[in-house]
Amino acid sequence: TSSHKLRLYERDDYRGLMSELTDDCACVPELFRLPEIYSLHVLEGCWVLYEMPNYRGRQYLLRPGDYRRYHDWGGADAKVGSLRRVTDL
Results as ranks from 00 to 15, higher is better:
1 T>Q: 13
2 S>C: 09
3 S>Q: 07
3 S>W: 06
5 K>V: 08
6 L>K: 02
8 L>Q: 02
9 Y>P: 00
10 E>Y: 05
12 D>H: 12
13 D>Q: 11
14 Y>F: 11
15 R>W: 04
16 G>L: 06
16 G>I: 01
17 L>R: 12
18 M>E: 14
20 E>M: 05
21 L>F: 05
24 D>N: 04
25 C>I: 00
26 A>N: 10
27 C>T: 06
27 C>L: 06
27 C>A: 10
28 V>P: 06
28 V>K: 05
28 V>S: 04
29 P>C: 08
29 P>Y: 12
30 E>C: 08
30 E>I: 04
30 E>H: 08
32 F>S: 15
32 F>H: 09
34 L>Q: 09
35 P>Y: 12
38 Y>K: 09
39 S>H: 05
40 L>T: 00
40 L>W: 01
42 V>F: 00
42 V>R: 00
43 L>W: 06
43 L>Y: 09
44 E>M: 05
45 G>C: 05
46 C>K: 14
49 L>T: 04
51 E>W: 02
51 E>Q: 06
52 M>Q: 14
52 M>T: 04
52 M>D: 09
53 P>Q: 02
54 N>F: 06
54 N>E: 10
55 Y>N: 05
59 Q>G: 07
59 Q>H: 15
59 Q>I: 02
60 Y>M: 08
61 L>C: 10
61 L>Y: 15
61 L>D: 15
62 L>Y: 03
63 R>T: 11
64 P>E: 01
66 D>C: 07
68 R>Y: 10
69 R>V: 11
70 Y>T: 06
71 H>D: 07
71 H>C: 13
72 D>Q: 08
72 D>L: 07
73 W>I: 08
74 G>P: 04
74 G>H: 12
77 D>P: 12
77 D>R: 09
77 D>C: 15
78 A>I: 02
78 A>Q: 05
78 A>L: 04
78 A>R: 11
78 A>K: 10
79 K>V: 09
80 V>S: 01
80 V>L: 07
82 S>T: 01
82 S>V: 04
83 L>A: 02
84 R>F: 03
85 R>K: 14
86 V>P: 02
86 V>S: 11
87 T>P: 13
87 T>S: 12
